[in-house]
Simulated scan of single mutants.
Amino acid sequence: MVWGPSAAYMVDVMHARSVECIAGNAGLRSALMAIGVGTILPMINSWGVVVTNTLASSMAIIGFALLWCLIKYGDELRAVVDVGFSPSGSSVTP
């Protein structure tokens, strides 16, 4: 559930390169899902359902915490890193 808001944030920050942001997000999501599916079934077989669910819920809580920090400190993060794009979507010329 973290990928959708993260993609929206990237589009918000980099208007002129929004297509690249969405493509990168989709590619990373697909790669991580492939790795996840390839590791979940062997993990269930070797460690059991409880340990696997505990690890998955821990990762979900970490993702929630990162997303919460991004929402809470988003303005400060945008101020620290100037990516060279204006809020209107046109590139800033120096």
Rank of each mutant, 00 (worst) to 15 (best):
G48C: 02
R78L: 01
D75N: 12
V80L: 14
D12A: 15
S58M: 08
G89I: 04
R17A: 11
S18D: 14
G74C: 07
L67K: 01
G38R: 01
I71E: 10
A23K: 14
P87C: 09
L32F: 07
I62Y: 03
G84T: 02
M33R: 09
A16E: 15
V81Y: 06
A8S: 13
I44R: 15
G84F: 00
I22K: 00
L66A: 08
D75Y: 10
L41C: 00
T52H: 00
A16T: 07
A31V: 10
S18H: 15
N45H: 07
I22E: 01
I71R: 11
L41E: 02
E20H: 14
Y73W: 12
M33D: 07
I44C: 06
S18L: 11
H15W: 10
I22A: 05
G38S: 03
M59Y: 10
S58Y: 04
V80Q: 14
F85V: 09
V13R: 15
I61A: 12
A8I: 08
T54R: 14
P5W: 00
S57H: 04
V2D: 00
V19H: 10
P87E: 11
N53V: 11
T93C: 06
G38K: 02
L70E: 07
R17W: 11
T54F: 13
I40D: 05
M1R: 12
A8F: 09
N53S: 06
H15F: 12
Y73T: 02
V37L: 01
L66W: 04
F64P: 00
I61M: 08
V13F: 12
V13N: 10
T39W: 05
L41Y: 03
S18N: 13
S6F: 08
S86H: 12
I44K: 14
S86R: 14
A31R: 04
V37W: 02
W47T: 07
N45Q: 07
M1L: 11
V83I: 13
M59C: 06
R17I: 02
G89D: 03
M1I: 08
M59Q: 10
I71W: 11
D12I: 05
L77H: 05
W68V: 07
D75L: 06
L66I: 08
E20C: 06
A31P: 00
V19A: 11
L41R: 03
P42M: 04
V83D: 10
N53W: 07
G89F: 04
V50N: 09
E20K: 14
H15C: 09
G36S: 04
R78D: 04
K72V: 04
M43C: 07
S30A: 15
V13E: 14
G84A: 02
S91R: 15
V51W: 12
V50W: 01
T52I: 05
T39E: 02
P5A: 02
M1Y: 11
G63N: 01
G4R: 14
A60S: 07
M33Y: 06
V2I: 13
P5S: 08
S6Q: 15
V83F: 03
T93D: 12
I35P: 07
S90E: 08
S18M: 14
M43P: 01
C69K: 13
I22S: 03
E20Q: 15
I62F: 04
S30W: 01
E76N: 10
I61G: 05
V83T: 08
S30R: 06
M14V: 08
A65E: 05
G84M: 05
V83A: 13
V11W: 13
S30K: 08
V2Y: 00
